[in-house]
Design a protein around this nucleic acid. Structure first.
Lengths: 186, 186
DNA sequence: GCTACTCTTGAATAGTAATCAAGAGATTTC
DNA sequence: GAAATCTCTTGATTACTATTCAAGAGTAGC
């Protein structure tokens, strides 16, 4: 095979595997999803996955990485949107992967790949939030703390996604950052 | 065996198994700990555990339940301690089981026993926090939201316990609830 | 001593992620 | 055009897991 076409088909197959993994991880959870099921969904043999990904954790990392790119792209322009709009956009993106919150943190301990994507996610959102808090009058140090607190709040909220609706989730987060910004309800 | 002595030795053995499980879960994590290792630590055969506990999740639930009792008992008297002291006490207790935060939420989805203990934990801390926020001037509705937000914040903070020291953790949470209470740094 | 009950155990089952050796398929190279 | 090479696939296998099962100790009441 010539290099170009190889890479094309390789990327295509890779994408199909990630598609299958994403669908199953979100529907059934990370632990409950077997590599065999992912392979079945992608139309390949169970062990064929290991030619594309070193292991299951790396497959999770690939799913997260793609989601992260899409999420960042879907966020509103920071210079035009209000902090509330930005935070709501982040929440909306995270809602879709809420199911994986616990698994991501559990696997980050073992897998460098998962930890790396997760850290990258934190870094990008942290930058966004810090600027937003600074625009709202907090100083540099306060903004750093406020951003960290907001991230923890959002992740904590997503740990319990069973019954809670997204509207209640939004209200809770907005109320809290409203308090952080000026001590009065938003 | 007479009923009394049976129950005595049964409880003793049960406790030894929970001891072993607690030690290993906290040291190596829930997923990485095998039932065989727990059994070895307790000095029984691998399968003997199943006479005392229906499964691994129930073992986790038992560990959590005991920890919860100890934690509640170790908290200061709500009528004497300040809200800050109470929150710090809760944080100190949770620090010891931070390693299990992700696992608890992941397993709560599958195991009724784990979900039940976790819910009980939330209920008790929620009551505590609500009263504390009310004492600080928030009304009933605000206190409910503030309590929920604080719980999410605390759990979110514990998801990332790798490098962070407890002092930084304490500062972050105290700063945030200070903001929630009156909009100025605590 | 018999019986019933509580508990233990070794062996077995079904499932998992991951590995390995053997081999297709297509393409470049000679 | 044949051979060699690289990319990919696959069936069988390994080592590990939680859990189950059938059979058997140990002890206490009768």
């Amino acid at each position: 095979m010539p290099a170009t076409r190889t890479h094309l088909t390789r990327d295509l197959k890779r994408r199909e595997i990630v598609d299958s993994a994403e669908e199953l991880f979100l529907a059934d959870g990370y632990e409950k999803t077997s590599m065999a099921a992912v392979a079945r969904g992608a139309g390949v043999a169970s062990n064929a996955i290991y030619w594309y990904f070193p292991g299951k954790d790396d497959l999770l990392a690939a799913v997260l990485e793609r989601r992260l790119e899409q999420a960042i792209a879907a966020l509103p322009d920071p210079s035009e949107a209000s902090m509330e709009e930005q935070v709501l956009a982040v929440l909306a993106q995270l809602d879709q992967v809420a199911r994986l919150t616990a698994a991501v943190h559990e696997r980050s301990r073992q897998s460098e790949a998962v930890a790396s994507v997760h850290e990258s996610f934190h870094g990008q959102i942290d930058g966004l939030l810090r600027r937003a808090f600074r625009d709202r009058g907090l100083d540099e140090a306060e903004s750093a703390i406020a951003s960290e607190a907001t991230m923890a709040l959002v992740e904590g909220v997503h740990l319990h996604d069973q019954k809670r609706d997204t509207a209640a989730r939004d209200r809770l987060v907005l109320w809290t950052i409203g308090r952080i910004v000026d001590g009065s309800p938003a």
